[in-house]
């Protein structure tokens, strides 16, 4: 089976305290540490496990710049057969649809039976997998938390409300977005990364892929992030000193304001 995994490099939320830069138009990126997006790493592990069961190849691709090569090396060290960096100035500022368009052209260059993405990036929107599938006209399933191969089809389970699982049968080729926890990603040590330090990683640009430059990049984006901000909230514990009832009201209000009511 030929498997493609689309992975991204993101600031790791478990190792960073995200704050705004002085200008307030971006997050402070100077002291951030980056890593492969958590869900994408599960997707790579899943791809490797499928390959090890049924044979084939795992290709990992990322759209980005030179810095993003780092995660491709990590995935190579994990055991991916090849890695591709998709990079072009024309791509910068793309919205989700732009990104999916680039990936669609990349996929059409090759031949993949199965395409995996992570469910969502820490700074993302859980959208690229579904868009890519629609552009390719492949079937799609999101939030996948187990995959079994049964005579040319996949039996996948999706995570739905209350921890329940929805079981679907899906034809190949297809696109699946992988939920964290589907497997236990293997550890990649320093040594593994050093061993692939000089593995070739081809870089493909817009013209290599035949990307319609009018459909990607900032100009084509119909969804634009205009700024970053931190909602004004007091720093340090604000002690509530009302009556028990008042405090409960206040807590409820705060939970709701933080988007915590489901």
């Amino acid at each position: 089976m030929e498997i493609l995994v689309c992975a991204r490099r993101v600031p790791d939320t478990s190792e960073n305290e995200i704050s705004l830069n002085a200008a307030g138009n971006d997050i402070e990126r100077d002291e951030l540490v980056y890593s492969v997006n958590e869900a994408d790493n599960y997707a790579v592990e899943e791809a490797l496990q499928i390959r090890d069961r049924v044979g084939g190849n795992v290709t990992v691709a990322t759209i980005g710049g030179e810095d993003d090569e780092e995660i491709l090396r990590r995935e190579l060290a994990m055991g991916a057969n090849q890695a591709v960096l998709i990079s072009d100035d024309a791509f910068s500022g793309s919205d989700g649809k732009g990104v999916a368009t680039i990936l669609k052209d990349f996929v059409r260059k090759g031949r993949y039976d199965l395409i995996l993405t992570g469910v969502q990036a820490d700074d993302g929107a859980a959208q690229v997998g579904g868009m890519l599938a629609a552009m390719l006209d492949y079937p799609f399933a999101s939030l996948v938390n187990s995959i079994a191969l049964e005579d040319g089809k996949l039996k996948v389970s999706r995570e739905i409300e209350g921890g329940n699982r929805e079981i679907n049968e899906i034809d190949l080729p297809c696109v699946l977005s992988i939920q964290t926890g589907i497997n236990e990603p293997r550890y990649v040590g320093m040594r593994g990364i050093r061993q692939v330090a000089s593995a070739p990683i081809p870089t493909l640009g817009a013209s290599d892929l035949g990307v319609d430059q009018g459909a990607v990049g900032e100009a084509a984006a119909r969804v634009k992030r205009v700024d970053y901000f931190v909602p004004a909230l007091s720093k340090g514990a604000e002690m509530l000193d009302g009556s028990r009832e008042e405090n409960a009201d206040k807590v409820l209000e705060l939970v709701a304001a933080k988007g915590g009511l489901k």
Binding site: E15, N16, S35, M78
Partner: peptide
């Protein structure tokens, strides 16, 4: 470690040690 066979709860601090030089992932 060489085989990548490391419990998830140990992978976190090891990764943080690599990127931040401490197992807690603190700045």
């Amino acid at each position: 470690i060489d085989d990548g066979n490391v419990p998830q709860s140990l992978q976190k601090p090891l990764k943080a040690l690599e990127s931040r030089g401490n197992p807690y992932g603190k700045m």
